[in-house]
Design a protein around this nucleic acid. Structure first.
Length: 569
RNA sequence: GGGCGAUUAGCUCAGUUGGAUAGAGCGCUGGUCUCCGGAACCAGAGGCCGUGGGUUCAAGUCCCACAUCGCCUACCA
């Protein structure tokens, strides 16, 4: 059948919605031409899928939106609009006016099936779009200090960042993943000192750990490695002179471990950016001079302050301490400036929710540097509550008792871990139960979705064995898919590109998992009620076409989540 | 004290940016297996959307006040 031009113009949008929007636009125009409606600025027309079949397939509230401008009763406007619709292609069964003035569209039987042709045509690109128009965006996430292995708390940020990046790439942004290494400052000195202390302990000294030092087992291991490599010669050197060696050794070993753990978790960065680099080429100094020229910096006592209150922060912030040392904030501003200088139009930071007070400050910095407020976006990720069989697992970073990312991936697997971290909006608290995530049961949503995928693969396998080929566009009798569950499946499939775009627009990756659960549920229900493979060749063909579309969406969506798509389970 | 965020079914949480009769999972009760995979499905019970005002054709959603809870409130990173 012939495709309508609108399918191509607005291909990334759901085809049917666009058709209806176009019909409404023309109807409004002709209503004004015929003086049935006063001339008004064309409003943005919304068409939505209905929840209740009694309301048709799609509905628009445009008559109610127009009511205030046009100064007419919404139902009266709806009547004018519905009568003005010229459905040349015969898409519509009927249009009804309902409730306070909704226009309910009933799609002609079989028309919806043609929407699946887009899925078949686009294949693994289905769900993608060009919302981002190739704009460059950077996503900075994890960015944990290299003072210890990643733990469960970092894991959530890692998944949110990684999936967010996938989503943005799918909607047409050029995405760059970056990890900011806080390898300057006190903590690094403490790290080196901690390893040195363990080193001396291994050589028989009794040591006491001061405040701020790290006591995890990994510190002891690093000390042992250094002892093996260098022997006891560091014992006789001055601590101040030898600590940097210990620091560098520990930091780079830990960072390598972090990279490896992330890789096993399916997270790969384009760049690990070192904070030290900002000092190396005087980036922080340059930054401060730039801000000084713009009069955002003032001196009070011996310290330098940044006037963040000029952009709505509640108080000004120190950028250079009385002792002459720049603060972490100063380096972070320099880093963000560098991001924009490197050509990113949009910069997304993913932070722990306990840093939310930091947002006004960073936002002020970005604006002071002359960039749009919107150019920096921050996604906050709430704490993870780690449980085992419903009981909290004790964790304390200071004592070194924590469950590492590595252990979680080992225990529950990458797929379950990743999926579970996206089961809530990122700024809401999340319980993560190790036993539950491991369990292969209906309590574990990742299997529910993967199972749908495996089931369809199984159907296609059997079809192939029986010599039944899945039909392609044009070979399908569109009118055969008319069961309510089939219509429901088709509509849900057509929602996918919008879901991806919605997730990108709002920076809410969890929308994908909720969508997937919906889709899988409708499929499972359909599967239990109806046979795909039957003696009826035409019907089998049509259903194979439908089920293949479901498979494509499951595959594309799971890939965005970084979750595997098993053909057998 | 100030700032930010939350409050929706017994529990954990969604709610597509203001739309029609508020949803899902778990748990609970009762069902489905001669079948393309039961890691599945079906049915049922369960709600003052924290409270009180306001905005309008329409409020879980926007505005104000209050209550309760959490987080932030560094010349740390």
């Amino acid at each position: 059948m012939a495709l309508r031009p609108t399918f191509f113009i607005y291909e990334e949008w759901s085809g049917m919605k666009q058709v209806l929007v176009n019909l409404l636009e023309k109807s409004i125009q002709s209503g004004m031409d015929a003086r049935l409606l006063p001339p008004v600025a064309p409003p943005r027309i919304e068409v939505e899928l209905t929840k209740d079949p009694g309301h048709g397939d799609y509905a628009s509230n445009i008559a109610m939106i127009l009511a205030s401008q046009v100064k007419k009763n919404p139902r009266e406007i709806a009547k004018i609009l519905s009568e003005g619709i010229e459905d040349r292609d015969g898409v519509l069964e009927k249009v009804e006016i309902a409730g306070p003035g909704f226009l309910n569209f009933f799609i002609r039987e079989g028309e919806l099936t043609t929407l699946l042709e887009t899925v078949e045509r686009q294949g693994d690109r289905y769900g993608s779009s060009n919302l981002g128009q190739g704009r460059r965006v950077q996503v900075e996430f994890v960015s944990a200090n290299p003072t210890g292995p990643l733990h469960i708390g970092h894991a959530r940020g890692a998944v949110v960042g990684d999936v967010m990046a996938n989503i943005l790439a799918a909607v047409g942004y050029q995405v760059f993943r970056e990890y900011y290494i806080n390898d300057a400052g006190n903590q690094m000195n403490n790290l080196g000192k901690s390893v040195l202390l363990r080193y001396r302990e291994l050589l028989g000294e009794t040591v006491e750990f001061p405040e701020g030092c790290y006591r995890g087992d990994y510190i002891r291991e690093l000390a042992a490695e250094l002892l093996k490599r260098d022997g006891d010669r560091h014992l006789h050197e001055k601590p101040d002179e030898i600590i940097p060696l210990f620091t560098d050794y520990a930091a780079s070993a830990i960072l390598e471990g972090i990279k490896e753990d992330l890789r096993l978790f399916g997270v790969v960065f384009d760049l690990y950016f070192s904070e030290r680099e900002l000092y190396r080429d005087d980036g922080v100094g340059k930054l401060l001079r730039t801000l000084q020229e713009k009069d955002f910096i003032y001196r009070e006592g011996k310290a330098l302050w940044f006037r963040t209150t000029a952009f709505g922060d509640e108080k000004d912030r120190v950028v250079v301490r009385q002792n002459g040392e720049p603060t972490y904030f100063a380096a972070d501003i320099a880093y963000h400036r560098k991001k924009f200088l490197r050509g990113f139009e949009m910069v997304i930071d993913i932070w722990g929710a306990d840093h939310h007070g930091y947002i006004p400050r960073m936002s002020a910095a970005v604006q002071a540097l002359g960039y749009e407020r919107d150019a920096l976006k921050v996604i906050l990720v709430q704490l993870v509550n780690l449980l085992r069989d419903g009981k909290p697992v004790a964790m304390s970073t200071r004592s070194g008792e924590f469950v590492t990312l590595h252990e979680v991936v080992d225990e529950v697997g990458k797929d379950a871990a990743r999926y579970n971290f996206l089961m809530r909006r990122s700024d809401s608290h999340l319980d993560f139960d190790l036993e539950l995530a491991k369990r292969q049961s209906n309590e574990n949503p990742v299997y529910y979705v993967q199972y749908a995928h495996a089931r369809i693969c199984s159907i296609l396998r059997i079809a192939a064995e029986r010599g039944v080929a899945a039909p392609t566009t044009g070979q399908v009798d569109a009118g055969l898919l008319r069961l309510p569950e089939e219509i429901d499946l088709i509509k849900t499939i057509t929602r996918f590109p919008e879901v991806v775009k919605g997730a990108a627009r709002t920076l809410e990756p969890h929308r994908l998992t909720f969508y997937l659960n919906d889709l899988a549920a409708i499929f499972h229900s359909y599967y239990n009620k109806n046979k795909v493979l039957s003696d009826d060749g035409a019907l089998t063909g049509a259903r194979l076409f439908l089920v293949s579309s479901v498979l494509t969406v499951l595959k594309n969506a799971l890939k965005m989540l970084g979750v595997s798509t098993p053909e057998k389970m």
